[in-house]
Nucleic acid binder design. Structure first.
Length: 293
DNA sequence: CGATGCTGACACCAGGTGTA
DNA sequence: TACACCTGGTGTCAGCATCG
């Protein structure tokens, strides 16, 4: 089911110049693919094939890339979440069709746009995670494939963080389903990295030394956050969207992993975040609750 | 009385910003 | 680029309250 962005939100000079394929030329296979594309992918991506040439990162030959619509959608998802488990991507982005995801991933890896690693996992032993490479990041940036203001990430971090990022993708899917059930649209993903970056920048602007409680409250409020016991807890992921009535709305979500201590979780709850069980529990129980701030 | 859950304190780590 | 300083995250231990 396509969800989210309006095509005009993502019009690039290429789109405006009419290079987009006419809808009438869509094959039935493309129609099937459209129905299974990731939830955060703009609809026009279902119809395009991007061929672009990127300047070399270092002196040498420039690289020319040929990427199918479904592949662009896939790297866009990877850019938004930094790391996604291959099986989760197959389930949500390809409707469980592993036969379709394999050639896409192979093509992206062959072109050096995507990287795959087997990351150790506490509960699952290990799992195959995918992430964008630097070239993949440049590809999305220069083709303007992501929406306005959508921050993209590339490269693996530490194993625990990579697993955490991958779990957030599952969490997002659950929440997005609920938001769209309430007629929310134009969903945008904000990870904690981005929120912390903005938050700390504003706190740093207040100058050296101790920040007063009042100043902290003002900064937190500006970012849609709350001060809890002198701290500003940042949610793992924020989903910004357009609510049914047209108003901008957001949902802050926290992934409650097994190592979470009572106090930490209590602070998050006080700060108004929604909580959900670990990735595996998400998969088995489907449990997730959402509160709109 | 023991199990359980919550909380405080502490240490260490990672990531961000500002500055020299 | 290195460093200092800030933040939150994570892990451990211990004390306290509650419950069966």
């Amino acid at each position: 089911m396509p969800r989210g962005y309006e095509p005009e939100d993502f019009l690039t000079p290429r789109d405006a110049s009419g290079e987009r394929e006419p809808a009438t030329e869509q094959s039935s296979r493309d129609q099937v693919a459209r129905d299974k594309l990731p939830t955060t992918v703009p609809q026009w991506l279902h119809k395009t094939r991007i061929e672009t040439q990127l300047l070399p990162l270092s002196p040498g030959r420039s690289m020319k890339y040929g990427v199918r619509n479904s592949e662009t959608a896939t790297i866009l998802e990877l850019g938004k979440f930094r790391a996604i488990a291959q099986e989760d991507l197959a389930e949500f982005a390809y409707g469980g069709d592993k036969g379709r995801i394999r050639p896409d991933i192979a093509n992206l890896m062959r072109q050096g746009l995507v990287e795959m690693k087997s990351i150790p996992h506490e509960e699952m032993g290990s799992r195959k995670l995918l992430t964008l490479t630097k070239n993949g990041h440049r590809f999305l940036t220069e083709t303007q494939s992501a929406g306005k203001g959508q921050v993209l990430y590339s490269g693996f971090t530490k194993p625990r963080e990579a697993n955490h990022d991958a779990d957030l993708y599952l969490l997002y899917q659950k929440a997005a389903e609920k938001i769209e059930g309430q007629r929310g649209r134009n969903l945008r993903v904000v990870l904690d990295y981005e929120m912390k970056k903005r938050l700390y920048r504003d706190l740093a602007k207040l100058g050296p030394g101790r920040v007063s409680s009042e100043q902290k409250h003002l900064v937190a409020e500006r970012h849609g956050l709350q001060v809890v016991r002198g701290k500003i807890p940042v949610p793992d992921i924020r989903i910004e969207y357009q609510a049914r009535d047209g108003e901008r709305a957001r949902v802050d979500l926290e992934l409650a992993t097994s190592h979470y201590r009572g106090r930490s979780l209590a602070e998050k709850v006080r700060a108004g975040f929604s909580s959900t069980p670990t990735g595996r529990m998400l998969r088995s129980s489907g449990g997730c609750w959402i509160s709109v701030n």
